[in-house]
Amino acid sequence: MRDAPKDLYERVLKGDRRAAARLITMVENGDRDAREVLRMLHSRTGRAHIVGLTGSPGSGKSTLACRLAQGYRAAGKTVGVICVDPTSPFTGGALLGDRVRMQELAGDPEVFIRSMGSRGALGGLSVATNDVINILDAFGKDLVIVETVGAGQVEIEIVKYAHTCCVVTMPGAGDEIQAIKAGILEIGDVFVVNKADREGAQRTLADLEMMLETRPGGPGDWKPPVVATVALEGEGVDELERAIERHSAHLLESGMMAEKTEQRMKAELLGILDLMVSREAGRALEEGEGKELVRRMAERQIDPHSAAEEVVKYLLKRAGN
């Protein structure tokens, strides 16, 4: 059953959850009609505050997302949650279990939760996630939470450009902090030590604070706070909420919001261009000159870097005509 773009657009604006859900599926499947709807919805986007939640597997991101959503709902705000879990690169399948930790949100029509497999294969995860964020934004959600496992580069890429990026860790395994060090220390606007009911929480807090002290100056002089939470019990969650609010206010007051938005737009655009250009290039290699180029590479007549330059020239020339 296909829905006409115009019809979907109107239903989404009217708050039809089924229509929004269908549109998200179309985005995930790379459906061309989805692009048409997104184009129409675009003027309605730009209102939501986007919060990224990333961190080690099992650190309590989903449980925290649930608590945060409850807090914002209590303050009268509507919430969208996007949970990205890894797709198996071998089978293409995924088991998406984040909803299990968000059961308390069920039954509230103002909370929309969507689970996504990272699908990987097409390399278009960040593009798809951005599209889904835009859909939930246009759908009228005041807050959009994006949960990803902070393991892969792509997963980090997605949350990096959220307005407020929260990095979640937990006490225990000594290399936890080490893992954080590799790449995500730089991107956090707020750090969370969840499972603070567990032994070693104080040490993890102290370690984290020390590491942040030596972090190269954050954007706009923002000093990322470290918050201890027990997501299971809801402890510390209001403090986390306040930290997010403070960061959001800081973005506005310092003029950093414009810069963040620009960064996000740039990343979004580059992601789409990546897909478009590699698709075009792929096509070019299947025909005439491109095919010939590959053949010459195989014969060692031209090296890959020079061949790539030839392809770019060819694409530019074709685009100019």
Partner: peptide, 12 residues
């Protein structure tokens, strides 16, 4: 189902 390439969401 996951191993057969499907995306499986579990409710709890």
């Amino acid at each position: 189902l996951r191993d057969a390439g499907m995306e499986v969401i579990y409710s709890g």
